[in-house]
Design a protein around this nucleic acid. Structure first.
Lengths: 108, 108
DNA sequence: CCAGGCAATAGCATCGATGCTATTGCCTGG
DNA sequence: CCAGGCAATAGCATCGATGCTATTGCCTGG
């Protein structure tokens, strides 16, 4: 079946378009953060409504966020972190494949 | 002088208002991220225009962001990280003062 | 079976980040 | 001095996250 190969090929070419890969990364990050929030919330035995009240938002907002429906803002992430008694950490970490070159210059 | 004490008192009460502390945290985070981007950019010997082009935005956007003028979105942070050859990391880390209580329940 | 809580989702208004152009002041190499 | 690059900023349009209400389906304890 060539379908699979074609799809991968198409995917590769689409990811190469400017902006597409970044948007994909952001969406994936949003999804992972949603999973993490859901995990932390359930571990605390809270319902979406309870977390929502603690974080100053509504149940629908929590649901939308946990589902990864939108890419959340740092402001909202701060509020959720505070409600979950966590500390939000954001940083630019060195890329794994750049570990060897000490003075690596960005491309372009 | 009671001025200093009054100011601290006012500050404390304002920070206690719902939403204020979180917004403050987000603004501080934005400021720190701006500093970090500026640092990484200068370390690479790039101008704002060069970084802007690499990240798919304009010089004004980079300047506004480095100054901490707005709280950036994760999408923009991803693009900057990619341009600077870094990996954006976002996570909910345990709070330092919660290290002792294994099953700490969020407040309220 | 039935009431109540929970999660998901739609629809809408609003706020704020982003993209863009243009301008200004500063500094530096020539 | 002067041209050119750089950073900061204003002004505006637009996109998208957020806040909110309401609804739906599911599940569970009674």
């Amino acid at each position: 079946m060539a379908d699979r190969a074609d799809w991968n090929d198409l995917r590769e070419r689409r990811m190469a378009e400017p902006g597409v890969a970044e948007a994909y990364d952001a969406a994936r990050l949003a999804f992972e953060l949603g999973q993490e929030v859901r995990h932390l919330r359930e571990r605390s035995g809270w319902s979406q409504s309870q977390l929502a009240r603690a974080a100053g938002m509504t149940q629908s907002a929590v649901a939308r966020f946990e589902a990864g429906g939108t890419v959340p803002t740092l402001t909202v992430l701060e509020r959720l972190a505070r409600a979950l008694d966590r500390k939000l950490e954001v940083k630019f970490a060195p890329r794994a494949d750049a570990a060897c070159s000490a003075r690596h210059l960005p491309r372009r």
